[in-house]
């Protein structure tokens, strides 16, 4: 199974989870996702996800100067984002539990 296909459905949740720990700019979010083990995440889709979550009102955004280069656009969770994260987490846990149960039953039956 292609992990990148699975990733598409849960990228929102992954990005929200990363931002719950600390605010971050695009490349930083990307790096943290990779460090967490999501190595197959596509660069552009992280940037796209951030833009969509921001447009949906789930993220705050502010610009900070950086020592190395141009200014960086930081994103952080606002209340809407926190709510969305909580809700998505519930959905995911339910889904993951269902899948786990399904797979376990099948294994037992086999």
């Amino acid at each position: 199974m292609d992990p990148s296909q699975l990733l598409k459905g849960v990228l929102d949740l992954a990005v929200l989870a990363v931002l719950r720990d600390a605010d971050g700019y695009g490349y930083d979010v990307l790096r943290r996702l990779r460090a967490a083990g999501l190595e197959d995440v596509a660069d552009a889709s992280v940037y796209g996800t951030l833009r969509r979550l921001f447009a949906a009102g789930a993220l705050t955004s502010y610009v900070q100067p950086s020592e190395e280069g141009p200014h960086r656009k930081y994103y952080g969770l606002n209340q809407t984002g926190l709510d969305l994260l909580a809700e998505s987490t519930k959905t995911w846990n339910h889904f993951a539990g269902t899948m786990a149960g399904l797979l376990t039953k099948k294994e037992e039956a086999a």
């Binding site: 598409k8 596509a42 660069d43 552009a44 992280v46 940037y47 796209g48 996800t49 969509r52």
Partner: peptide, 18 residues
């Protein structure tokens, strides 16, 4: 590293909901 500019743009499009 990033795919072709078209692939990059398509990924961005899909993820951003354009």
């Amino acid at each position: 590293r990033l795919g072709t500019p078209r692939q990059y743009a398509d990924e961005l499009r899909t993820a951003a909901g354009y």
